[in-house]
Each structure stands twice: as C-alpha cells, then as structure tokens.
Amino acid sequence: MELRTLRVFVEVVRQGGFSQAAHTVFITQSAVSKAVRQLEVELGLELIDRSSQRIRLTDAGEVVFGRAQTMLAQRADLLAELEEMKGLKRGALRIGMPPIGSDILFAPLFAIYRSRYPDIEIKLVEHGSRRLEEMVQSGEVELGASLLPFAEVFDWQDVTSEPVDVLIRDDHPLADSASVSLRQLADIPFVLFDAGFALNPIILDACRSVGVEPTVTARSSQISFIVELVGAGVGIGFLPRRIAEHRIRPGVRQIPVTDTGMVWHMAWIWRRGGYLSFAAKAWLELAAEQG
C-alpha cells in the first residue's frame, strides 16, 4: 500500500469526486480512478459506493479514510523533523489562512518573520476554516487559522476576538443608529459569504437564537464585493469589527449588533500531540509577541 495512493483516495473523498481530485493531485481523472480501484483490490474491499451520484464511503471506506489521514500526517511530521536535522532554522513553514481578514491581521507578521528567518520558505494556502482544519489534521499544513469552536483534536493559540458588525447603506432608516438588534434587521435581505465560510454559521446561529430566519439575497467570497453590494442597496452585510473598519467605504455605515453570539474568535490551531517544526514554533512565538 503506497502513501501516494492513499493521498489520492483521501482527495477523492475531500473534493467530492474523481475529476475534482485530479486537479488537486495533478494527475488525470482516469489515473485517479485507477489508483482508487487498485487500493480496493489490494484491500479486498469496496471503499466507495459507486451506486450513488455523490461520493459516499462504505463502512470500510470510512475506516481507510480515517487511517489514511493519520498516516499522511505522520509522514509530514517525519519529513519536517528530518529537514530540521539538516540545519536549524531552515526548512519550510506550511501555514493556512482564511480569506477573511488575513491581509489585515497577518501581513505585518509575514514581513517580520521573513526578516528574522530569511532561510525559511513560507508555503501559504488560503481556505475557509473548516477546510483548513482538515488540512491541519492530515498534515498538509502545520498551522491553520480557524474560528472557534473547533474539535478537541487541536491545540490552539489565541489570535483575536472581534464583535461582528452589520454593514448597511447610509440612507437606510437604521443607518444612524448607535446599535441594532438582529430582530430590527430581520426584514432586510442579507448578503453573506459563500457556503463554507465559518462566519456564516456565526451570523445564522445568532439569528435563529432570537427567532429570526433571514432572507439571503446574495453571496460572495470577496469582502470588497459584499461591501459594494451593500452600497448598491442589495442588502446588509456582516464583517468582524476590525476588518469592517478597514474595508468600509463612503455610502456604507458600520453598526454594532447587540445580540450575544455575534463574535468572530480566531486562533492558530495545530494537531494535538503532533510534531511542530522550528518554523512553526517561531511563527507562534512571533504571533504571541505581536499580539
């Protein structure tokens, strides 16, 4: 059983299909299908239920998927540890960050880190929090920035906790309010982030806790576009306070929301008990120092 075959299988499950996985592992779709079939033949068990249009794991597939993630993470730990034996303060920092707020929160850290450790290569990926958690678990990245709450399989270091404010067009009757409640906003369409962004559940769970079921009129993965949609009167948007302060533009107001639960709490996470390279430890120390 080869680790690269397990990697292909893991990506088929994560990406939800053979063609999607092919783009991730940089081989053809037919090669992906062949690798999964070979793994099934080797194990003597079907891992994927092919009668379903969507990727659905068999019971055996669930076991192999869990074990494969652990094996791939252990391989990543081994390579990182061996790399450090070649020379202290060399190697790579494999780190994952979310699209929301990374430019404001972390860009200064990158500049300082680069000046202190010029021989460390930074390998950065951008994904939503839940995808980053998967990547940390599998060892694809050592550190990820994710939103609380998350599973107990992670250790973590606090980054920031920000209230989530509403963005509203400046000619709306509520625009001059010192603060608003979600019930006051209930009849206004919402402009949210795309599915998979961890900010969405924060907003929607807070709404449901006060009996509000909002109408979502638009979604986007881009902060600037959401702000423009708010300015155009399409609906209201939501951003963590510090992020909103940097992204607000004329014609749009930022107002605190009074409801509890509207908090964006971010932390650095890594696998509990997993190996942390010098590069990752140095990043965490710098983040704590600058925080």
Results as ranks from 00 to 15, higher is better:
51 S>V: 07
82 L>N: 13
209 S>Y: 13
139 G>A: 08
25 V>H: 00
187 D>M: 10
38 Q>R: 06
217 T>W: 08
196 G>W: 00
268 W>P: 03
260 T>A: 11
189 P>Y: 09
5 T>K: 01
132 L>E: 14
126 E>G: 13
59 D>G: 12
238 F>P: 00
173 P>S: 08
217 T>A: 13
95 I>H: 02
139 G>Q: 03
30 S>C: 09
8 V>N: 00
228 E>H: 03
174 L>A: 03
14 R>A: 10
98 P>A: 06
23 H>E: 15
6 L>E: 00
78 L>R: 14
150 F>Q: 06
290 Q>Y: 10
118 P>C: 14
55 I>F: 02
23 H>S: 14
89 K>M: 15
221 S>H: 11
222 Q>G: 13
180 V>K: 14
86 K>Y: 14
9 F>I: 09
225 F>T: 15
35 A>W: 01
272 R>F: 04
139 G>D: 04
202 I>Y: 03
19 S>E: 11
8 V>W: 00
15 Q>H: 09
240 P>Q: 07
274 G>N: 14
215 T>K: 15
181 S>I: 06
163 P>G: 02
128 G>V: 08
277 S>I: 03
22 A>D: 04
77 D>Q: 15
134 E>R: 11
275 Y>C: 08
89 K>V: 15
72 L>D: 01
220 S>P: 05
4 R>N: 00
257 V>N: 07
60 A>H: 12
13 V>G: 03
165 D>Y: 04
213 E>N: 12
6 L>A: 01
9 F>M: 09
145 A>N: 07
159 V>E: 04
289 E>K: 12
147 L>V: 11
190 F>A: 10
155 D>M: 10
174 L>C: 08
27 I>C: 03
260 T>L: 13
59 D>L: 11
23 H>Q: 15
178 A>H: 08
144 G>M: 08
256 P>Y: 02
119 D>N: 11
220 S>M: 02
112 I>W: 10
184 Q>K: 07
192 L>V: 05
85 M>F: 08
